[in-house]
Measured scan of single mutants.
Amino acid sequence: MASQGTKRSYEQMETDGERQNATEIRASVGKMIGGIGRFYIQMCTELKLSDYEGRLIQNSLTIERMVLSAFDERRNKYLEEHPSAGKDPKKTGGPIYRRVNGKWMRELILYDKEEIRRIWRQANNGDDATAGLTHMMIWHSNLNDATYQRTRALVRTGMDPRMCSLMQGSTLPRRSGAAGAAVKGVGTMVMELVRMIKRGINDRNFWRGENGRKTRIAYERMCNILKGKFQTAAQKAMMDQVRESRNPGNAEFEDLTFLARSALILRGSVAHKSCLPACVYGPAVASGYDFEREGYSLVGIDPFRLLQNSQVYSLIRPNENPAHKSQLVWMACHSAAFEDLRVLSFIKGTKVLPRGKLSTRGVQIASNENMETMESSTLELRSRYWAIRTRSGGNTNQQRASAGQISIQPTFSVQRNLPFDRTTIMAAFNGNTEGRTSDMRTEIIRMMESARPEDVSFQGRGVFELSDEKAASPIVPSFDMSNEGSYFFGDNAEEYDN
């Protein structure tokens, strides 16, 4: 783990906690998980779902989305002020799938948001429990990260689609708070800032007046979040320049895209947490497990152990491969979309394939898809080993990566060399080191050039047997250095459309 220093740990961010010791953190995270579980059980009762239907990941996603929508204050306010045809701002819903006479049927349900809020609060001892809501947002974000390569979004903001390893959390809503900021990748933060800068260039009043003052505060806050992700002084200094700019424009845009590229080699610290679907927490609570009393951590053995003992089902389209669908969801559960496939294969105990080789589309089923041909199958979400999630980018030494994705962002704290394609990355730096950030740029390029592919990161860190909950005997895996390590390699994943 990167030293926490003055930073709060993510469990504290996750639970809005002030400084807590490890036991208190485990208890408050457990409380959050228990609340999600209780809410899910109650919703299944309301909807009269069978046990099997309640364990269907598509039903879980609909129920999670309903509660997130019920608590989305800004959108609710907007919907009330701008009524649109056929949208009731006070209601929320989605597809629920039921097994009827041996076939899967889709039923569109509609609930009062007020009623959903009441059920959620009741499951969370009367609190709004925003930490639990954020947790579900991060699960949705991790699922998107594993399912889609955001080529269009990258290109629109002047970045290269091969930089997708920097895009963790790119679909997280803005209201996801400190826990959300911690899991956002460098590219995601750059993209958010670039969008602001572009608006400022096109709209003279963007930075002016009372609204402009708020915009400015948001801009500086985002700059500080991004600065905190960088691990070298030169990158941090460049972020200070971007933040202090009187009138952010093209120079800042250039600096930010430069920094994003540099992060492929001088990786930023991005938190990883295993956020599971509500249909995993519900049955665990129903079986009598007391998360608050037992304590829970999002970055240790607990999620692995929970998945070892969970039964989750998914709808499967006619030509999809259930094992591939399982891999997709497994990666999402562990926030591992940008991790090295060699490491993932070792931990999972079966070969993890790149996205383009998977015969599976996303987990969600569109409303126009034919239910007649839908089957369902068990998702295999178990693992051979477990490993500690990392909050750091690993040290800054790398190795060759593949054509589709030119770097990785480690999820697990496991000893290995970190793949990246130096030639491709360095070719993108057209040696432009003039301007006010020239000395920093020169320094950053120097550090990137001296990074050695064969150097090892996370020295001495290994994986653990599932029986080793105290992480007492690390097993340090050895990897084939020459092997392909990137998930979005030469990829044809669908595009994420909101």
Rank of each mutant, 00 (worst) to 15 (best):
N395S: 09
L143W: 13
A85E: 11
H334Y: 13
R384D: 05
N397H: 02
E11G: 08
F346R: 02
S176M: 04
L56G: 00
S359W: 04
A146L: 01
S482G: 11
R436K: 09
E64V: 10
S9V: 12
A182L: 11
L143Y: 07
Q168I: 06
S457E: 08
G35V: 12
N21A: 03
E81M: 02
R118T: 14
S314W: 03
F458T: 00
T396D: 01
V242T: 15
K351A: 10
L143Q: 05
P248H: 05
N211Q: 04
Y487C: 12
M66Q: 08
N101L: 07
S274Q: 05
N368G: 01
S359H: 08
K229A: 08
I445S: 02
S402V: 10
A70I: 03
E369S: 07
A337F: 02
F71R: 07
F458Q: 01
E210Q: 09
Q405L: 03
V285D: 07
M239K: 11
K113S: 06
N417V: 15
A451D: 14
I25Y: 06
L256V: 14
I388P: 02
S141G: 14
N144Y: 12
C279K: 03
S297K: 01
L306R: 12
Q231N: 01
E495G: 09
H272L: 07
R75D: 07
T188G: 10
E24T: 14
Y385L: 11
G393D: 01
I63E: 04
V312I: 04
A27K: 12
Y97K: 00
Q42R: 09
E210T: 04
N483W: 11
G102W: 05
S473T: 05
P354W: 04
E14F: 12
D72F: 07
L266V: 15
D497Q: 02
A263N: 11
K87T: 12
V285A: 14
R175V: 09
Q405G: 00
E11F: 09
I445R: 02
M238G: 05
N417S: 06
S60I: 10
D203C: 03
R246H: 06
P303H: 11
A234S: 15
G282P: 00
I138D: 06
N368R: 11
E244A: 06
F420M: 06
R441P: 10
